[in-house]
């Protein structure tokens, strides 16, 4: 193999540029497992005490309940987004719907619309529906805000599936629904998987919506929990514990990324290679 240019200057440049980020993450990791003397830069002892919040609820309050809530929040949102996008995307891609163009451009606009600006309207709707201050309400709002993106992505995946495959299925005697479920859906599986991951991660990291739409409810998601931990006025304020909780909060997202990074990239390639 011949190279047109040497790789090392680029690698060096990238290293220098990403060094601050890298050091930051490194210290985040190191600090959660060690104590540093005041004024010193380097840690002087190894300790697990910052991770005690995992088993001892007296330190910052029980962490597992918010974790479970967050998990529930992210997965319900994922289920809604994936199932609605999978069906709506198919309908928009394949069926002769009335107002199809209108719906399509509507979705496009919604996708580009900053969702925060909708918050007052959303508030009114939730209030009216009696879902204000409830986990269900927040899940529904979060999911619907993600739907334009999901539907649009899934439509793209469906568009890439050849018509003939679908016609062959119909010709083989299967109903449109069976064709969709047994033939078309497997073709867009990469899209579904990456959409599911995106939805989950998006739900996992949500802070704004629960905060605004359920300010006085009895549930708490991890981002809100982290916020309480980091409150400098609280009696339990401890910067290293804050870092540990932060790391704990990030871990699932990191793990998902590492496990599925190829799949996630798929969504931008838009390719469905059977």
């Amino acid at each position: 193999m011949t190279r047109n240019f040497a790789a090392w200057p680029i690698i060096l440049l990238l290293t220098v540029l990403s060094l601050p980020l890298f050091v930051m993450y490194l210290f985040l990791l190191v600090d959660t497992f060690s104590n540093t003397a005041p004024g010193s830069l380097l840690p002087n002892e190894f300790t697990l005490e910052h991770w005690r919040f995992l088993i001892d609820p007296t330190i910052t309050g029980d962490v597992w309940k918010p974790t479970l809530t967050t998990f529930l929040f992210a997965s319900s949102m994922m289920v809604i987004v994936v199932s609605v996008s999978a069906t709506a995307g198919y309908a928009l891609s394949r069926l002769a719907l009335p107002f199809r163009r209108f719906v399509l451009s509507g979705i496009m606009v919604m996708h580009a619309f900053p969702s925060v600006t909708l918050i007052i309207g959303v508030f009114l709707v939730l209030q009216f529906a009696g879902l204000y201050n409830s986990l269900t309400g927040v899940i529904l709002v979060k999911a619907s805000l993600m739907l334009p993106f999901g539907i649009w992505i899934m439509k793209g995946f469906y568009d890439a599936v050849p018509w003939e495959i679908e016609m062959a299925g119909v010709q083989d005697g299967a109903s449109r629904f069976t064709v969709w479920r047994r033939i078309i859906l497997p073709q867009v599986k990469p899209g579904l998987l990456s959409l599911a991951l995106f939805a989950f991660i998006d739900g996992w990291s949500e802070y704004m919506l629960p905060r605004i739409l359920a300010p006085s409810s009895d549930f708490e998601v991890l981002s809100m929990y982290l916020n309480t931990v980091s409150d400098p006025n609280s009696s339990t304020y401890n910067f290293n514990i804050f870092k540990s909780v932060g790391l704990f909060y990030t871990l699932p997202v990191l793990a998902l990324f590492v496990l599925f990074q190829n799949r996630l990239m798929n969504i931008f390639g838009g390719g469905t290679k059977g």
Binding site: P162, E164, I165, M167, A168, G169, V170, Q171, D172, G173, A174, S175, R182, I183, P186, Q187, K189, G274
Partner: peptide, 30 residues
């Protein structure tokens, strides 16, 4: 009658095989 009720076999120009099924499953699908 819709296609499903006509009992017609079609071979498409690009064959339109189902890529996620093996040959046996493809043939068995109908």
């Amino acid at each position: 009658l819709p296609s499903q009720k006509r009992n017609v076999g079609v071979v498409f120009q690009n064959y339109a095989l189902y890529p996620h099924m093996n040959v046996f499953e493809n043939i068995a699908f109908p």
